[in-house]
């Protein structure tokens, strides 16, 4: 960013003049020239004030620019779907809604399909037993007639139910299209967050320059928090303080006597 470079350059200049002036001050004091020394001090003060105003001016300008930059991505969406969503939290809420809908639809379809699968399996098992009896010639003609009717019914039901299972599986397949849509939204939000971070880093850098000029020291005490939920861990495999799966959890618990 040009601002920070420009500012960094001027800051070095200010530092240089500070060095020159202070050695001049020292020699004036050593020589006993109090009036001259006071003049240098007042010059130094002026230089500092001017720098400070300049820094604050730059900081304000950069703040405005950054705030404006934050808006660019949020309003400039291309697809119709995204244009309705004005800011990142709205977009993420949309992701939550989409994933929630998809998960519920999938669960609905699975719950609807499972009984069909169970029924097919049960009836096939029971028919297999009857069929085996027939092949062992243990069946009376009356039982055989009953069996043929059952097989008829079973085959009819199988055709219908397997059609339903196939239909539901296709619907589950289509429901996964949320990944494409939410992926696009998340990618946009990610790039927005990156921009915001870049701008914030620049702001912090500028604020640092102002701190250096005014000699401000911030007392940023670390806030100690209790153990809190953090949600899913990324890159768990590369982290020492995080388990990388159920096996790790089991090992840890068994080391604790579980």
């Amino acid at each position: 960013m040009t601002n920070s470079k420009e500012m960094g350059g001027s800051f070095d200049e200010f530092e240089n003049s500070l060095k020159v002036q202070s050695s001049k001050l020292k020699s004036l004091v050593d020589d006993g020239d109090v009036a001259g020394a006071l003049e240098v001090i007042s010059e130094l003060n002026n230089a500092r004030d001017t720098r400070l105003y300049l820094e604050v001016g730059l900081l304000t300008r950069s703040l405005h620019e950054s705030i404006r930059n934050f808006q660019i991505d949020t309003s400039g969406s291309t697809t119709e779907e995204l244009s309705k969503i004005e800011d990142a939290s709205d977009r993420l809420a949309y992701v939550v809604e989409m994933t929630n809908k998809a998960a519920n639809k999938t669960l609905d379809l699975v719950e609807e399909t499972m009984p069909f699968a169970a029924q097919m399996k049960n009836e096939a098992q029971s028919l297999k037993q009857e069929w085996d009896r027939l092949r062992r010639k243990e069946m009376t003609p009356g039982e055989f007639r009953k069996l043929t009717t059952r097989i008829d019914t079973f085959l009819e039901a199988l055709t219908k139910d397997s059609g339903k299972v196939h239909e539901n599986l296709s619907a589950i397949l289509l429901t996964q299209d949320f990944q494409d849509l939410t992926g696009q939204v998340i990618n946009r939000v990610t790039s927005l967050v990156k921009d915001v971070e870049e701008n914030l880093v620049n702001l912090v850098r500028m604020a640092g320059s102002v701190d250096a000029i005014t000699g401000t020291v911030h007392d940023l005490a670390e806030v100690e928090n209790g153990i809190e939920g953090e949600g899913p861990q990324m890159n768990a495999a590369q982290r020492e303080d995080v388990v990388s799966g159920q096996d790790d959890v089991d090992d840890l618990l068994s080391s604790l006597g579980f």
Binding site: G231, P232, D241, V242, V243, L252, L256
Partner: peptide
Amino acid sequence: VTAEAKRDQIVAAA
């Protein structure tokens, strides 16, 4: 049954 996977957390739960 949780996504929390920090060793400290598992120890705390235990």
